[in-house]
Simulated assay, not measured.
Amino acid sequence: MAPVPVYGLLRGIFRWPVKICVWTTLTSYALSVITSNCSQVDRIWTFMPTIYTAYYALLPLWPKESFLPLWPYTPDTVDPAFTQKYSPRALLMFALVTTWMFRLSYNTWRRGLFAFHDEDYRWAIFRKQVPRWFFEIFNFTFIALIQNIILFLLGLPTHIAALQQPERLSTSDYILGTSALVIIALEFISDNQQYSYQSFKHDGVDPNTQWPGAKINWTQRDVQRGFCTRGLWAWSRHPNFLCEQTFWIIINLMPLVAPESPKYDLPPTSMTPIWPLAPAVVLCTLFFSSTIFTESISLSKYPEAYKAYQSRVAMFVPFLTPVWGLWLKLWGKKEEVDEIVYGQSLVERTKRD
């Protein structure tokens, strides 16, 4: 396939997504000011990546002109080669992102975060830590603008797949697609384990009523500790965050490692474009910085226990947790830290989990 003219794409395929990004940015910011609640963007995180993905995956479906203000359309400037035939890779990615959306939407719904009055606890804490004028600037630039740009970027991998127009799925599509489903399942389990723990901690809910994989026999030692350290959370301090980043890295890689690697018509002086990697890089940067702030809050609430948890369990990568355990053992501190983190011996913990 001939190289795709990047500058032509900016006038074509990106026209509607950019319009939607501007609209969601202004709307979410206005709602945050009106309601004094900065979690408006958090709520649209559950479905905006799917909307962008659907637009690129279903290009042949859209009309040439929008008959409603925000209705998707494909301008005449878009090459007919991309609007007359569906890309099987883009459709696969759309199916995966839709599955991801159902998982996240369900978890958001049961936590009550779809209610307009509910706000992420981290924003309330950060609001108290900085001057009001700084928070208002932060609210527009980071919470509203930058996060909506990130949501826009998450659709770019499907945009690349839609332009590749492969005849059929490749081996890499099957491997990465299966991996993405496994990651979604693991993230669902980690969400359920956290929800099971919080339900037992705050309401005394019987763990046996929870989803399979989350029926953990919580103890009063777990409640006193204040945070979850069982199941997947015994191997990673943030298994849900790890799975989230991994899922979008897989989505980002699907068109990049495919046989029809993207080729872009750039000026002769330009270097090989690296912008196709932007979605994964930006998202991982966001999660890392967000995790640092989240852990600072946990550390202030549970100084001794969470410090021990940090020294025993890896932030993301579970394969590092045994390494931290070995390091503590060499220093003669493993049993002491295990008692604080797990509240039981390693043998007992293995039997229970």
Rank of each mutant, 00 (worst) to 15 (best):
P5D: 07
L10P: 04
R11T: 14
R11W: 14
G12E: 01
W16V: 02
P17A: 05
V18R: 10
K19D: 09
T25A: 11
T25D: 12
A30D: 12
T35W: 09
V41P: 09
D42L: 01
R43D: 02
F47E: 09
P49C: 05
T50L: 05
Y52C: 06
T53W: 13
Y56W: 11
K64F: 06
E65I: 02
F67H: 15
Y73M: 01
T74I: 05
P75Y: 03
D76N: 11
T77L: 10
T77M: 10
D79C: 00
D79M: 00
A81N: 13
Y86N: 08
R89S: 10
R89K: 12
M93K: 02
T99L: 10
W100N: 04
S105H: 06
N107S: 10
N107Q: 14
A115L: 11
A115F: 09
E119C: 04
W123A: 01
V130I: 04
R132N: 05
F140S: 01
T141Q: 10
I143R: 12
L145R: 13
N148Y: 03
I149Y: 13
L154W: 15
G155W: 01
H159G: 11
H159F: 11
I160Q: 12
Q164M: 02
P166C: 05
S170G: 02
T178P: 08
S179T: 09
S179V: 03
S179M: 10
V182C: 12
E187Q: 10
Q194F: 08
Y195P: 10
S196Y: 09
Q198E: 12
Q198K: 11
S199V: 05
F200N: 04
H202A: 10
D203P: 02
P207M: 07
N208W: 14
N208Q: 15
W211L: 13
W211T: 13
W211Q: 14
Q220T: 03
C228I: 00
T229K: 07
G231Y: 02
W233V: 01
A234G: 11
W235L: 06
W235H: 11
F241D: 05
F241S: 07
C243P: 00
Q245I: 00
F247R: 03
F247C: 01
I250W: 00
I250T: 00
L253C: 06
P255A: 03
P255F: 04
L256E: 08
E260K: 03
P262T: 05
Y264I: 02
P267R: 07
S270R: 03
T272M: 08
T272P: 08
A278D: 08
P279N: 09
V281D: 10
C284N: 12
T285A: 14
L286Y: 13
T294H: 15
L299G: 15
K301S: 15
K301A: 15
Y302R: 15
P303I: 14
E304L: 15
A305S: 15
S311D: 15
V313F: 12
A314G: 15
A314S: 15
A314F: 14
M315F: 11
F316M: 09
P318K: 08
T321G: 07
V323G: 10
G325F: 14
G325V: 09
L326P: 00
W327D: 14
W327P: 06
D338T: 01
G343A: 00
G343W: 00
V347D: 13
K351F: 06
